[in-house]
Structure formats: structure tokens, C-alpha cells
Design a protein around this nucleic acid. Structure first.
Length: 723
RNA sequence: GGGCGUUUAGCUCAGUGGCAGAGCGUUCCGUUCACAUCGGAAAGGCCAUAGGUUCAAAUCCUAUAACGCCCACCA
């Protein structure tokens, strides 16, 4: 009789079922006949090739898979496109470190050879996360897997840049940028992390020119940058300094004469109200410098050491060393008024954690004014909706006063800017996807392509359409773009989501997706961020090993709420596993009730004509949750949907109905009555399996394949209950 | 400095105007059985604090506190 073993083994079943789905091609919408009319598409936020799976990915994959399976069962032409990101700076840094361990220096190796090594890395580890996602049960269409350095994709990158250039939004300028002295590249503001550091606030006396017994005292956290000061600024409203504005000071040590200027950017309350202006190494100072036409004196170089422009004694010193010498020298000269302890936020590179230097550097920028407006408009008009809605605010706040986007990086790994320089007159350039045949400037030289590459986020900003083939006209683009939903983490709302919105609108004229789900961050039980480097990370594969993919999925799914954080607790996975066990055994029981009856198939589409009160009740409840689970999935309330299903199946169905049916079948007065009860059991079970499938796809598929249901298809492509 | 979030049972969390809930843990009872990964029962909560609105507040409003996160050109 018993077609189901008394023990369910997720390891064996999950592997078998995933292979079955793959072999049948159910993930590929083109293989599903007849072709459904409505489309539903999701692009997987492409993990970068140095990453490996963590609980955040697991959570996000579960969310996306629930949606994709739900819409697939609802008859949508459904695709979930997977892929990876080349991960510019992080890949370069990881491969660099690996080579370093092998005793190979990246710069000695040279660009070409280094890139070969990165490609090797990608071959070996680049699809690691994608392979891991299969274990979770992600129903991605692997035949459409994309990569942000695919030959077609890089055409999209060039095309986008050229488009922005033609719009007049691209410019090249020497600006103060965030510079990582270890990665040797510029970084955008969004690529910084801040950490609090204890430091000092040095109050330094700058003598007044002509009357050197008088001083203006400035407060600074970085005395070494005084070598690059080109003014002292005060607030125009500050009566303390009213008479001094326009007069000059003698900059100690450097012995230069610098003016006192008035600028409203200066805060009256902070320090002494007088600020040293170093246009080369501070953004506010750069702004003040522009307004007052002050010279930019670069005193710190790309290696975070003192530059060649400073006095010989300091040249080549680390900033900290120079600071110490300068403070000593000032102290000896009696020019330090006081030193206060001070705590401030120091910017760090988000990849290598080095302290960022602000230095002037020639970079490429995209003007953000119009693009930001476009993005804001799309969200304000509800064409793009955030879930939960409060994340709109994070988006708006940034977009309202964003600075121009520095898109160039001094890395090797990535698409090089489609910019060609004249070798004779290196300030002249042409923007073109192809190498110009003839230099339009000197008419002679072979033009040289820029050695800068694009910011990784410039390429990932094109993901929802470039992954479907843009800029080429492609069938997939027509079918699946704009996509339906994007599910991602909150920390990349501006880094990534916003940029996809404006790039998409500008380049394709369409929104990239209509709904953005910002999911919770997975924290440890005691509220720390899960991270491998902190040793707080938990590998989802370990949990799959313990609880099965279904158990882990259910455990995650029913914790999904709109609240901000998700304190990870393994008990939930245990609950998930137990639920699967319950499902398994209830199904075994249902099959046992068919014993002794004539073998036949039962309908999962038509409600049995129910006489008994208990049956009517369970059917009514089933109808109710079919509606509410659908509604909850469509509104992304996955946790509530999972809980409702749990409650229904375990309590209404198992604890109550099954117990009553057990007796009723045994005591049935006629074969017809018994058959009706059996039909009801199978009907409720089959429809429960459908409702549960998006959450726990493996075990539901396995059970569904065994129970005697009329006209059934594999559950993954079965029809969702009609509501 | 600005913003956001959280605060409910021992633990992890649901619950947005109508008798305080779940999972795990704890205690007691139960293995003539679908499932001990189970069933039945029980204990356990001034819903952070203080005011307010309301017939009625965990839920709405105001303030406060603790914790967490994000943003920021106070050098």
C-alpha cells in the first residue's frame, strides 16, 4: 500500500526533484506550452564573482522563488534570470591578494596577465553562489545566465556611456575625490564606510601678517594638511573676525601668505569659528576654494604619503608621520594653543577598509541633475513602488541632493571607458565604442583607449535590460522587460536601485521594474550583523544539511515581516523541518485511507459534493486561505502567508479534520459516503500542496507526484487553485 | 547634527481600535500507532516609561528612555 516511506529524506528527494525540474526545462518559460499570455519576470541581483552564499542571499532567494513559483502556477510566462557581476574593485582586490600570497606582484605581472588571472578566478569560483542557489531550490532559468562582462553586455555599457556623453552629461575634471591608497582608485561616496575613531582637535595659531603678535586660531583634525592651506575662512556673520576678513596670515612652517576669507559654509559654533582651507584635501574646502579662487595645493599623494610639492623634510612621509613632526615643530614655535580629544567618523574603503584620502584627481563624471529628477519622478508617481514604502524616503533624501557620479576607476578589471586619447595632445579625446581609424586632432597617431575602467555600479545599473540583450533588439527584451519585481537589500537602494531606475528610463524609456522589495537584514541572535569576517556568518548550506532546503526555506519565510531586522534563530528552521515532517505523515495517512477502496483518481479542481458538516467546514476554510494566501503573496506578506498555511494545515486539517475523517471513513454507512470522504481528503491535501509549493517546493512536488489526482501535471507547473 | 526602525511570554518574534498570540523552551499526562520531528493539558506577559484621544488602546497622538541602522561638507 504505502507509497511513501515512513521517513522523509530531504537530501535524496531534493536532489532528485531539482534534477527532474531541470531536465524537464520547467524553469525556461519558452519550453512551457502553450505559451502563456501574461509575463512575470525577475532579475536576480547579480552576486559578484568573489561572493559566497550567506543568509541574506538565502532570504532574498526564498522571496524571489516564492514569487516566481506563484506566478508560474498562475499561468504567467515567468522567468527568473540569474547571473553574476564582475565586481570590479572587490574581484581585483581578492585576486590581487591571492597572487600576493603566491609571491606575485600585480604591477610586475602587468595588466594583461593580471586580467587573465581574474578570468581564471571567474571560471573557477565565479558561479559559486549560483550553484549554491540551486540547493535552495531557486527556479532560475539557467539557460539565460548573464554576466556583466559578457561580450553583449559590455556593448551595453559603452552604449550607455556614449548616450550620456551625447546628452552632454559626461565631463572630465580634476576634482577632489575619495581615494583608496591601497586599491589605488577613486571611489564614490556610496562606496565608503565610516568608522568612529578617537583623535584630537589641534588648535593652531596662524600669525597675522604685519602684526605677528596677533593670531587667528584654527581648529583641525589633520595638522599635516596645513602645508596645503590656501586661506583661512570665517563666517561672514561672525563678529569676532569681522575686522580681519581681507587681511592676510602667515602660514606657519610653509611660510606662505594666505588670506582670510568670509564664507557662509563655515560654522560659527564649531572650534574657533575659523577654519583652515585646504582645497586639495577636503570637499568643503574645495568648494570654498572655488568660490574664492584659491589655489589647489596637493600635499598628499595617491599613496597617502606627503607629495612632492611640500618641503623636502616631509616628502614621502606617511601622513601620520608628517602630522607628528608638524605638531612637534608647531609646539616648539609656541603655535599650538591647545589639543582637545575628539571623536570623529573616518571614511574607509568598503572593500579593503583602508582609510580614504581626499585628493584631487582627474576623473570622469556623469551629471546627476536630470537623471535624479527622472528617478524621483518615477517613484513619486508610483510607477516604481517600494515595499515597505518607508524606504522611498531613503531614496528621495539621497536623490534630492546627489553629487555628480564619478564613473571612472583606476582599476584593470572592468570595461574600459570608450574614450580614445590623442597621443600627441593627450587632453584631446574622442568618445566612441570603436577605435577611431584616424586621430581627428593630430591626424597621425594611433589613438589610445583610456586605461580607466567603469565603476562596477555603472554596469550593474543596466542589469534589468542589458541582461535581456539590450541594446540589441531581442525577443526577451520585448517579453520580459520591464521586469515585475526587484528584491534586494536596503544598503544598495541608492548605490544600485536608484541607478537602475534612471538608467533604464533614460536609455530605454521604460521603468526597470514596478515593485521594489527591500527585505530585512539578517542579523545574529544578539543583533550583530552577519558577516564572515566577524565570524558571525552562518552558511545556509549548513542549515540545508540539517533541516533540508524546504525546512530552511519555511523557517526563513515565516519570519518575513515588514520590520527592519531579522534576528536569526535556528529554532525557526527546526519548526520548518517539523512542519515538513507533519506534511509527509499527513499525506501518508491520507493514502492509507484509500486502502480497501477501489483504486481511482480524485479531482483537485472540483470540490467534492460534501454532505458531512466537518467536510463542509474544512472546504470552507480551504477556500478562505486560498484567497488570503494569494493576496498575501501578491502583497509580499510572505511571513503572514506562511503562518496562515502552517496554522491551517497543522490544526484545521491534521488535528481536527483528519482525526474526524479517520473515524468517519471507518464508520461510513455506505461505500459512497466513504468515497466522498476520501475525495475530500485528497482534495484538501492536493490543494494544500499547491498553496505550499512556493514555500516548500521539493517535498510538495514529491508528495503530489504520488497522490492519485486526476489530470495532474508536475506541481511546479500545476494550476494554482482558482479563487 | 538629521532621519528611520525596534522595545509584547525564559528565547526568537506575530499581532494597527474590541477577551493578549505562535514557534522553541519549561511542567504534567499520553505510545492498541499517519506523525514522539507526535497528541492532550498547563504554567508563564503592568504589551519599555509617562501623559493624552476614545465607550474601548499593545494598537492612534505627544513626550521620554534604551538598543540598532542609515545619512551628513562641524574642519
Amino acid at each position: 500500500m504505502d507509497n511513501l516511506n515512513s521517513q522523509y529524506d530531504p537530501k535524496i528527494t531534493e536532489e532528485k526533484i531539482y534534477a527532474f525540474w531541470t531536465k524537464k526545462g520547467f524553469f525556461d518559460p519558452d519550453k512551457i506550452k502553450p505559451r502563456p499570455k501574461k509575463n512575470f519576470s525577475i532579475v536576480l541581483p547579480p552576486p559578484n564573482i568573489t561572493g559566497s552564499l550567506h543568509m541574506g542571499h538565502a532570504l532574498n532567494s526564498v522571496i524571489q522563488d516564492i514569487l516566481v513559483r506563484y506566478y508560474r502556477m498562475n499561468g504567467y510566462h515567468t522567468v527568473w534570470l540569474p547571473g553574476t557581476d564582475h565586481g570590479g574593485i572587490s574581484a581585483e582586490s581578492v585576486v590581487g591578494k591571492k597572487l600576493h600570497k603566491e609571491g606575485i606582484n600585480k604591477f610586475e605581472l602587468g595588466r594583461e596577465k593580471f586580467l587573465e588571472k581574474v578570468w581564471e578566478w571567474r571560471e573557477e569560483y565565479g558561479n559559486k553562489i549560483l550553484a549554491q542557489l540551486k540547493k535552495i531550490g531557486a527556479s532560475c532559468d539557467w539557460s539565460r545566465t548573464a554576466f556583466t562582462m559578457d561580450p553583449g553586455y559590455i556593448k551595453a555599457i559603452d552604449k550607455a556611456f556614449i548616450h550620456f556623453h551625447e546628452k552632454g552629461w559626461v565631463y572630465r575634471a580634476e576634482r577632489v575625490v575619495n581615494w583608496c591608497p591601497r586599491c589605488k582608485t577613486s571611489l564614490s561616496d556610496l562606496e565608503l564606510e565610516h568608522s568612529e575613531e578617537k583623535s584630537s582637535l589641534w588648535h593652531i595659531k596662524y600669525p597675522l601678517l604685519g602684526d605677528e603678535k596677533k593670531f587667528v586660531v584654527v581648529a583641525t583634525t589633520r595638522p599635516e594638511t596645513m602645508l596645503g592651506d590656501s586661506a583661512v575662512a570665517v563666517n561672514p556673520k561672525d563678529i569676532r573676525y569681522k575686522d580681519l576678513v581681507g587681511k592676510n596670515l602667515v602660514l606657519p612652517i610653509a611660510n606662505r601668505v594666505i588670506p582670510i576669507v568670509a564664507d557662509s559654509l563655515v560654522d560659527l559654533e564649531f572650534g574657533t569659528g575659523a577654519v583652515k582651507v585646504t582645497p586639495a584635501h577636503d570637499l568643503t574646502d574645495a568648494e570654498i576654494g572655488r568660490r574664492h579662487n584659491l589655489p589647489v595645493i596637493k600635499v598628499i599623494n595617491e599613496n597617502a604619503r606627503m607629495a612632492d610639492d611640500v618641503a623636502v623634510a616631509y616628502r614621502g612621509l606617511k601622513a601620520a608621520e608628517a602630522r607628528q613632526m608638524i605638531v612637534e615643530e608647531l609646539t616648539a614655535a609656541g603655535l599650538i594653543e591647545k589639543i582637545e580629544p575628539y571623536v570623529h567618523q573616518v571614511p574607509k574603503c568598503y572593500r579593503c577598509n583602508s582609510t580614504i584620502e581626499l585628493i584631487p584627481s582627474k576623473q570622469w563624471f556623469v551629471k546627476m541633475e536630470d537623471l535624479s529628477k527622472t528617478a524621483i519622478k518615477a517613484v513619486r508617481s508610483n510607477k516604481v513602488r517600494f515595499h515597505p514604502k518607508r524606504w522611498e524616503k531613503v531614496f528621495f533624501d539621497w536623490q534630492r541632493n546627489t553629487r555628480d557620479w564619478c564613473v571612472s576607476r583606476q582599476l584593470w578589471w572592468g570595461e574600459r571607458l570608450p574614450v580614445w586619447f590623442c597621443q600627441k595632445e593627450p587632453d584631446n579625446y574622442v568618445v566612441s565604442a570603436r577605435e577611431p581609424k584616424k586621430c581627428p586632432f593630430c591626424k597621425k597617431c594611433a589613438m589610445e583607449r583610456s586605461t580607466d575602467v567603469f565603476d562596477t555600479w555603472f554596469s550593474s545599473a543596466l542589469w534589468p535590460f542589458a541582461s535581456f540583450g539590450w541594446p540589441k533588439a531581442a525577443k526577451d527584451l520585448d517579453n520580459f522587460f520591464p521586469t515585475s519585481v526587484l528584491s534586494t537589500a536596503r544598503d544598495i537602494i541608492n548605490l544600485w536601485v536608484a541607478r537602475m531606475i534612471f538608467c533604464s528610463l533614460e536609455l530605454t524609456g521604460k521603468i526597470p521594474f514596478s515593485d521594489v522589495i527591500i527585505h530585512a537584514t539578517v542579523l545574529t541572535k544578539d543583533g550583530r550583523r552577519m558577516s564572515k569576517s566577524l565570524g558571525t556568518g552562518i552558511d545556509p548550506l549548513l542549515l540545508i544539511d540539517k533541516y533540508g532546503a524546504d525546512g530552511m526555506r519555511f523557517g526563513l519565510a515565516w519570519q518575513i515581516t515588514e520590520s527592519q531586522d531579522l534576528h536569526f534563530n535556528e529554532d525557526n528552521m527546526l519548526a520548518g523541518k517539523k512542519f515538513c515532517n507533519k506534511l509527509w505523515n499527513a499525506s501518508r495517512f491520507a493514502l492509507m485511507q484509500l486502502q480497501g477502496a477501489k483504486a481511482r483518481e480524485y479531482s483537485a479542481d472540483t470540490e467534492p459534493a460534501a454532505a458531512a458538516k466537518d467536510t463542509r467546514l474544512i472546504l470552507k476554510k480551504l477556500k478562505k486561505i486560498e484567497k488570503s494566501v494569494s493576496k498575501k503573496i501578491e502583497s509580499y506578506a510572505f511571513g503572514a502567508a506562511a503562518k496562515e498555511l502552517y496554522e491551517f494545515f497543522w490544526h484545521d486539517f491534521c488535528d481536527i479534520y483528519i482525526e474526524k475523517a479517520k473515524v468517519a471513513i471507518r464508520d461510513a454507512k455506505s461505500p459512497k459516503e466513504a468515497d466522498n470522504l476520501r475525495a475530500s481528503l485528497i482534495y484538501v491535501l492536493a490543494n494544500s500542496l499547491k498553496l505550499l509549493h512556493p514555500f516548500i517546493p521539493f517535498i510538495t512536488e514529491e508528495i503530489y507526484s504520488i497522490i492519485p489526482v486526476k489530470n495532474k501535471k508536475p506541481l511546479i507547473v500545476e494550476n494554482w487553485p482558482k479563487i
